[in-house]
Computed example of a mutant assay.
Amino acid sequence: MKICFVMYPWNKVEPEKDTTMRLIKECTDRGFEVSYLTTSDISISKGSVIGKCRKLIFTETEDCVEFYHTMQFETAIKNLTDFDMIFMRSDPPVDPLLLNMLEMIEDQVFFVNKPSGLRKANNKIYAASFDDGKESIVPQTLITRDIDLIKEFVEENKFDKFIIKPLDGMGGKGVVLFQANDIGNLSAIADFYINHAGKPQPIICQNYIEGAEKGDVRAIVINGEPIGAIMRVPAKGDHRSNISAGGSAVKHDLTEHEMDLCRQMGKRLVKDGIFFTGIDLINGKMVELNVVSPGGIVPHNNVNGNLDIQKQIVSMLLETYEEFK
């Protein structure tokens, strides 16, 4: 089997904690031919989607860090339809032009995740579409460029606390927590987020879910089925639980409610071609959906005694690939 990873540059990988590296190594351990390329390596020539692909020439080793550091590559221009499976693992947000290119071949190659699905789900608007106004799945959410509308939203719903965050943020960056009585300070921060790019950008305002100060749950969902989770605990003095923001991971067994919520969302995700997802939960509600380059494998393995969840991930995705064929 030939597998290609569309990812960030190799020299940007942090092998001690990188999820993509665990997936790559699992694929090579199974004897698959594995290549990688970056988003800037993809082109269209004579109606075909091609890429400057780097095939991995690796040393047999059990250690993933050594695997990374001893890697060598064989570079060639390839038609991307020569691959059986393409893993989309670039950092969000995804370039719409790249999605346009890859959508040309998504019926010919099995993508994790499908370009058309990423177009729908690679931003926080998709996650907000699960808001039913009753907080059954997600906290009440407003996406807007209008600061006055944010104030009205907070006051009408009588939020004690709320957060605002950029639409294209990742890793907890840019998440600001407000007390309702601090709403007078909202304008300056919201104005910065809305106008910092030179033209007005939407931002997210969301009800603060009680219990967030204790951390959140990152559920790993494959083919719509939750297969593992960790609890991410914020660093002292920080409201963000993201591990990249200093949070730490502890073992967590998903509750029946959390399992049901993930499966409920999973049905729609799979229908949209999203087979590998990280769903973040607080107090039984989804607060973040990660579809472009979901992480969490290394902390999951660490807190669960090196269960190597990447083996289950790849096995389940191979089952879906067989259905795709």
Rank of each mutant, 00 (worst) to 15 (best):
L98G: 01
L98V: 12
L98Y: 04
N100F: 08
N100P: 00
N100Q: 13
M101N: 02
L102W: 09
M104T: 08
M104E: 10
I105M: 02
E106K: 01
D107M: 07
Q108W: 00
Q108Y: 10
V109S: 00
V109Q: 03
F110M: 06
F110A: 04
F111V: 01
F111Y: 00
N113Y: 10
N113E: 09
S116L: 03
L118F: 08
R119F: 08
N122V: 01
N123H: 11
K124C: 01
K124I: 05
Y126G: 13
A127K: 04
S129C: 11
S129T: 10
F130L: 05
D132T: 00
K134N: 14
K134Q: 14
E135N: 07
S136I: 01
P139D: 13
T141C: 04
L142H: 10
T144K: 09
R145V: 07
I147Q: 07
I147S: 10
I150W: 07
I150F: 04
K151I: 15
E152T: 12
F153I: 02
E155F: 05
E155T: 13
E156W: 05
E156D: 15
N157T: 00
N157K: 15
K158Q: 14
D160V: 06
K161Y: 14
I163K: 08
I164P: 00
K165V: 07
K165T: 05
K165G: 11
D168H: 15
D168T: 06
G171H: 03
K173T: 07
K173V: 11
K173F: 12
V175D: 03
V175N: 13
V176I: 15
V176E: 14
F178A: 00
A180V: 10
D182Y: 08
D182C: 03
S187N: 12
A188N: 11
A188M: 13
D191M: 03
Y193R: 00
Y193A: 10
I194W: 13
H196Y: 12
H196N: 15
P200Y: 08
Q201M: 14
Q201N: 12
Q201D: 06
P202E: 06
P202G: 11
I203F: 04
I203S: 11
I204N: 10
I204R: 00
C205T: 12
C205A: 15
Q206G: 01
N207G: 14
N207K: 15
Y208W: 06
Y208G: 02
I209G: 01
I209D: 01
